[in-house]
Every structure is written in C-alpha cells, then in structure tokens.
C-alpha cells in the first residue's frame, strides 16, 4: 500500500501516543481525563478505518451498490464510544468530589496536602 493508504493508521498512532503521554505526564487531573479521551478517540478512528473498504459505500441493499464497507467495526465502536462517555462522565463526577474534599485537582497540591497530615 502507498502512503495515503496508511495515513489513517499514522494518525491513530500519533493521537494514541499524545493521549497516553498526557495521561502519564500531566499533573492536572482534569487534563489527564482529556488525554484519556484523546487516547480513546484514536482507537475509535482505528476501528472506523479498519472497516472502510476502498470505494465502498454504506452497506444498504439497493441498486448499483456492490462494494460496501464492513459495518461491524463501526457498530462495535458505537458501543465503545458509549462506554467512553460513561467513563468520562464518571471521572468528571469524581473530580468534582475531589475538588470539594481537597480544594484542588492538581496531583502535587493534593499530595502535599496529604503528606502534611
């Protein structure tokens, strides 16, 4: 395959690494969740790319439609998107509670608060 054929996969890898790096390195707990989202989105793009067939259309039975994309990965990733939203919502709810209890969403500040006790 030539370069454009793999373009999506390069984007997936770049997004994945950016997301993972933010999750690991950022000290702000909200930004970590942003990183986690970027990481998950890269996987969504990966699945969507996987199901695409060159020149294929939507998988509908109709006149003139012969080549169509594989719908299964797309359906799977709908489920994963829902799971991702649930995870993000839960993480944000947890962060609201953390902000209430500790007065900060910064990892260093919270650690300092904890070690003083």
């Amino acid at each position: 395959m030539d370069f454009p054929g793999l373009f999506n996969y390069w984007v997936v890898m770049v997004l994945m690494m950016i997301g993972l790096y933010i999750v690991i390195s950022d000290r702000n707990l909200v930004k970590k969740i942003v990183g986690l989202n970027i990481f998950q989105v890269s996987v969504f793009v990966f699945y969507i790319t996987m199901g695409k067939v060159d020149g294929g259309t939507a998988p509908i039975i109709g006149e003139g439609i012969e080549v169509y994309s594989n719908p299964l990965p797309h359906v799977l990733i709908l489920t994963a998107i829902v799971v991702g939203i649930a995870t993000t919502a839960l993480a944000l709810a947890l962060l609201v509670r953390i902000q209430d209890e500790f007065g900060s969403v910064d990892e260093d500040a919270i650690q300092k608060l904890e070690s003083r006790q």
């Binding site: 993972l20 999750v23 707990l29 970590k32 969740i33 986690l36 990481f39 998950q40 996987v43 990966f46 994963a80 995870t87 839960l90 993480a91 947890l94 962060l95 509670r97 953390i98 209890e101 919270i110």
Partner: peptide, 21 residues
C-alpha cells in the same frame, strides 16, 4: 477513596482500551 477510585479509573480505562486495540 476518591483518589484511589480516580487512579483506578485512569489506569483501568487505559488497560481496557489496550484490550480493545
């Protein structure tokens, strides 16, 4: 417990996403 849950959520989600990949 909130911090423990948050930590588990982040690492757990990364783990589950690795599995999906």
């Amino acid at each position: 417990a909130l911090l423990a849950a948050y930590q588990y959520l982040v690492i757990g989600t990364v783990g589950a996403t690795f599995y999906v990949i």
